[in-house]
Each structure stands twice: as structure tokens, then as C-alpha cells.
């Protein structure tokens, strides 16, 4: 709605993925344009997290194709997909993502350091993002010493610090109250828009989904684009 799509950034066709006995994905489709925020919704166990993991190259699907920027991801090696995640993608999870023994600024700087940026420079950039997310005063604290909402904002700063083209957020507000959840969503979508990053947002909260431009519902491993349904 806010952007006129020049082309698709990330698309997936006919994704299938089976765990032990259950079909987590059963022919799911997906596409997103640069700068677009797409909410992936659906009941628990419908396969929305699996879809996100496949799209982000964390899990290889059993079959189907995923194209990022014209490149087929399903045939990439693990190292290639890791490199892609390092440089092109950002991640925010519900919890358990900040390294407890590193300080907040070190946590935010982590992805840059993975890419080989020097420590000093990485932490300078990290601090810049922490300012944008209004958590720069926490830089010397460890994750155990900050509140859930603050921690999640630190996590968002970390996801954005590399300037990713796609931001994957899996229930980013799941562990927060509505006020902190809204605040995180505002900052997240503002920051993503300002860098023209696409956001894949998995959530079961409609008020969080309302921050998206478009919504996809996953039911029983199949996806449904709600805009086209009208």
C-alpha cells in the first residue's frame, strides 16, 4: 500500500515440509516486495514458523522453490545460506536470542562482527541503531538486566544493524504486554520503512498484524493471501 512494487524480492512456490509425521507445510506460497510488511498469521501449529524458517533459509524445505532476488535458495549450500542470512536478512524472535553474557551493545554489534567488521566500528554502528530504537542508555547492561520490551528493542536494533533487505520477525511481541508490544512494532516498522527493508512478520495477534501492509494466513500448511481473497 505504501510502496509501489518494482518487483518481487522474495518468493516461494509450493513449499512442502514434513516433520516426523505432520505436514508442517503443504504447498505454501509466498511473495514480498522491497519495503513491504507482510504479516503471516494462522492458528498455532499451522506452520507459520516453519514457513518463516524456510523463507529465511534456516530450514530447507522438502520440495518447492524459494527465490531471493532472482537466486534460487533451495539449491544453495548451508554456507551460502548462512552468508545470505548474515548479510541480507535480519531476525527477531520471541525470546532466547540475546547472548546473555554479552552486553547489549555487544549483542547488537554481533552480526556486524560476524561479517568481519572491526569491533570498534561495529559497536559504533550498533550504538547508532540503539539510539534509533531508544535503548542507547542500555549499552553497558547485560540482557538479564533489562526489561522484556527493552530487550526486544535491542534485538530489533541487532536485526537491523547490518542493513538487511528482509527482516524476519517471529512473534516479536509474543512475550510483551500490549504497550511494549506496540512500541516495539512501531519502532520496528518505522526502522524497516526508513531502510526500505521488507518485513516478514509471523504473529497471532491481529493488532500486531495491523502494522503490516498485507496479510497471509496459513492454515494446515497452506497459505492464503487475504488481499486476493476479496
Amino acid at each position: 500500500m505504501t510502496t509501489s512494487p518494482p518487483g518481487r524480492l522474495l518468493t516461494a512456490q509450493d513449499l512442502r515440509k514434513t516433520y516426523a509425521h505432520t505436514h508442517a507445510l503443504d504447498g505454501a506460497e509466498f511473495s514480498i516486495h522491497p519495503g513491504e510488511v507482510v504479516a503471516v498469521m494462522g492458528p498455532s501449529g499451522s506452520g507459520k514458523s516453519t514457513l518463516l524458517h524456510c523463507l529465511a533459509g534456516i530450514l530447507p524445505p522438502d520440495s518447492g522453490s524459494i527465490t531471493y532476488n532472482g537466486r534460487e535458495m533451495t539449491t544453495m549450500s548451508d554456507a551460502q545460506r548462512s552468508a545470505l542470512r548474515r548479510s541480507e536478512f535480519g531476525f527477531v524472535f520471541q525470546f532466547g536470542q540475546l547472548v546473555p553474557e554479552l552486553t547489549c551493545v555487544e549483542n547488537v554489534a554481533l552480526p556486524l562482527r560476524l561479517n568481519g567488521t572491526s569491533r570498534k566500528e561495529a559497536e559504533r554502528a550498533a550504538l547508532g541503531w540503539m539510539e534509533r530504537l531508544e535503548v542507547d542508555d542500555l549499552k553497558g547492561k547485560r540482557p538479564g538486566e533489562v526489561s522484556g520490551g527493552q530487550g526486544q528493542r535491542v534485538a530489533v536494533a541487532r536485526a537491523l544493524v547490518t542493513g538487511p533487505r528482509v527482516l524476519f520477525a517471529d512473534e516479536p511481541t509474543g512475550a510483551l504486554d500490549s504497550y511494549n508490544g506496540e512500541r516495539v512494532m512501531e519502532l520496528l516498522t518505522d526502522a524497516a520503512r526508513s531502510t526500505n527493508a521488507a518485513v516478514v512478520l509471523v504473529t497471532h495477534e491481529t493488532r500486531v498484524a495491523a502494522y503490516s501492509d498485507r496479510e497471509i494466513v496459513v492454515r494446515d500448511g497452506r497459505s492464503q493471501d487475504m488481499e486476493r481473497a476479496i
Partner: peptide, 20 residues
């Protein structure tokens, strides 16, 4: 239900946008 859902979400999006 799906149609209604989309319509609701559209309203919510507009409200969210206005809120921001």
C-alpha cells in the same frame, strides 16, 4: 468470515496508521 476478516484488518491498518 474471511472477507470480514480482511475488512476488519483493513480498518485496523488504517487506525494503526492514524495512531502512529
Amino acid at each position: 468470515l474471511d472477507t470480514q476478516r480482511s475488512e476488519h484488518l483493513r480498518s485496523m491498518r488504517i487506525l494503526t496508521d492514524r495512531k502512529r
